[in-house]
């Protein structure tokens, strides 16, 4: 064997896949907006799991005598119309949305990936039909579909998760399909066919690993939207029901006290704002780093 290869190998000894993962992570950590976003997201995730030990008071404990009090040393964020501690309720309110959003995202990504892979790979009539359906589906603002379905079917946490997941499926499938269309025409797919591989193998073993980057990016973006949508549904009283300390629900119910006790809605609103902005900061950084 020639001495030629030796040199090239030495230069490329680095395990390139792990090296890339490390490089991506390194770039992410170096991005300030990712760091800020990630810290906030981690805080809320920890809070969603361990809020029992973090809250100073029971978020459901009623105290009618202390209702509608402004922020004090005893109640940092004040109390609501039933005298419950707004600070404790704000901490406890992260759980519901952080349960619904990731599950719904997972569902939408899974569904969208399957639909996108199949339609993109096969193309033709099935693709045309499914894409028309997707078009028609996307003609409805997501919130309107949700309102329609939840108002008519009734609501539960499972329904909300499934609904958001189903609503996301066509959106994700479009993204996945567009990248699959590009990959499908690359010669490695042709060469797989030339060695007699089946369609299923080509889709899952050959193409799928090559479209993971856009799927990861889409997942982070979708997670932001899922939180957005879940909170909006709670706000419209179509998601989480009372007496949950869920942020959207609290804001919806506390609205009537806006003029006399704005803190009831203000703090959950700020909490929700930090979470969605943080998730989007992370998504944005991931997108930028992955695009390189």
């Amino acid at each position: 064997m020639s001495a030629v290869g030796l040199e090239a190998t030495r230069a490329a000894r680095l395990d390139s896949r792990r090296a890339r993962a490390r490089a991506v992570l390194g770039q992410l950590v170096r991005s300030a907006s990712f760091d800020v976003g990630a810290i906030i997201v981690v805080f809320w995730v920890v809070d969603a799991i361990f809020w029992h030990v973090m809250v100073p008071q029971d978020p459901q404990a009623l105290n009618p005598l202390a209702a509608l009090q402004g922020p004090t040393a005893a109640h940092w964020f004040g109390t609501d119309w039933l005298g419950r501690d707004v600070f404790s309720r704000t901490l406890a309110g992260a759980t519901s949305v952080l349960e619904i959003a990731p599950l719904a995202t997972l569902l939408g990504i899974a569904g969208g990936t399957i639909v996108g892979l199949v339609t993109g790979y096969y193309g033709g009539a099935v693709d045309a039909l499914v894409m028309r359906l997707v078009d028609a589906f996307l003609a409805f603002p997501l919130v309107i579909i949700a309102v329609l379905v939840l108002a008519l079917l009734g609501t539960s946490e499972i329904t909300v998760i499934v609904l958001i997941g189903v609503i996301f499926t066509p959106v994700v499938s479009r993204t996945v399909r567009s990248v699959v269309l590009v990959e499908r025409d690359k010669e490695y797919v042709a060469s797989a066919r030339l060695r007699g591989e089946g369609d299923w193998y080509i889709m899952t073993a050959e193409i799928l690993p090559n479209v993971t980057t856009p799927i990861i990016v889409e997942s982070t973006v979708r997670l932001g939207y899922a939180i957005f949508t879940a909170a909006t549904l709670s706000f419209l009283s179509l998601g989480i029901q009372q007496p949950s300390p869920d942020w959207g629900l609290t804001i919806s119910l506390g609205r009537q006290y806006l003029q006399i006790a704005p803190w009831i809605v203000l703090f959950p609103a700020i909490a929700l704002a930090t979470l969605v902005v943080a998730v989007n900061l992370v998504a944005d950084s991931v997108q930028q780093v992955m695009a390189r």
Partner: peptide, 18 residues
């Protein structure tokens, strides 16, 4: 711009109302 995009309308709505 990204933050504005991320905020649900009811959050911004409440904030501007207050």
């Amino acid at each position: 711009g990204m933050s504005m995009l991320a905020l649900p309308e009811f959050v911004t709505g409440i904030v501007v109302l207050v």
